[in-house]
């Protein structure tokens, strides 16, 4: 499992854009939104938590179909399925690799990009923290969606359609935590909920994804 995780990280680094693309996309979203909205500092501060969470969520979505898609095309997913490694473990390793190459950089970049949106330093810290807790859920849910659309040609749009509604609870609690923090209100409850969704996803989704992979490979 660790070997598969390491291989996916190595592939992401070598194929270029593994780490970079999602970050640049995140930056572009954060730049475009004030252009479309307003340059008013107080208005930006008000929408900053939502914009940053939404940007991270969309950036996460970009690379989802590559999680299993490349391995499915070149036949290595078949070979992994016949190996001693259970498909549930394959799913966890791949979701973890996706998180490390996408979720983690996004979480670390978010407070920096928050400066562009007039997000206070304290709220920025909560932003980073909420994304650290929430991006594992985004990767896990997204990887689950990717197992469902594995056999569909040009399934990228379908994947977004399936995954985005599943992202709703994570988005609501995550953005709410940062919003409360920016207003100086307590933010512990939504943060705990974000953590709970991530933990729940680790507990349930491997089984659903393993089943979906088996269905797709047969």
């Amino acid at each position: 499992m660790i070997q598969l995780f390491a291989r996916d990280i190595r592939l992401a680094v070598r194929s270029g854009g593994g780490f970079g693309l999602a970050l640049i996309f995140f930056l572009i979203v954060v730049v475009l939104i004030p252009l479309g909205l307003s340059s008013d500092q107080s208005a930006l501060a008000l929408v900053a938590p939502g914009v940053l969470w939404l940007g991270a969520l969309l950036a996460c979505l970009l690379s989802l179909d590559r999680i299993f898609g490349l391995d499915y095309e070149d036949g290595s997913l078949d070979l992994l399925a016949t190996s001693p490694l259970p498909l549930e473990a394959v799913y966890i390793a791949k979701a973890a690799a996706h998180w490390l190459t996408t979720g983690l950089p996004l979480a670390l970049a978010a407070p920096v990009l928050g400066v562009l949106l007039n997000l206070s330093f304290d709220a920025g810290k909560v932003m980073c923290f909420s994304l650290l807790l929430g991006t594992p859920a985004l990767s896990l849910i997204g990887a689950f969606g990717a197992t469902l659309t594995l056999g569909v040609k040009r399934g990228g749009l379908l994947l977004s359609l399936l995954v985005l509604p599943l992202y709703v609870p994570t988005l609501i609690f995550g953005a709410r935590a940062v919003h409360s923090a920016s207003l100086g209100q307590p933010f512990d409850v939504p943060l705990i909920m974000v953590l709970a969704i991530s933990l729940g996803a680790v507990a349930i989704l491997p089984f659903a994804s393993g089943a979906a992979l088996r269905i797709n490979l047969r």
Binding site: F144, P169, F173
Partner: peptide
């Protein structure tokens, strides 16, 4: 099979969304 898996997982998240929205 795949839509059924989606329906099961989706229901959990739909319920969760309901509570999230109330919050």
């Amino acid at each position: 099979d795949l839509t059924s898996v989606l329906a099961l997982v989706g229901s959990v998240f739909a319920l969760l969304s309901r509570y999230a929205v109330l919050f």
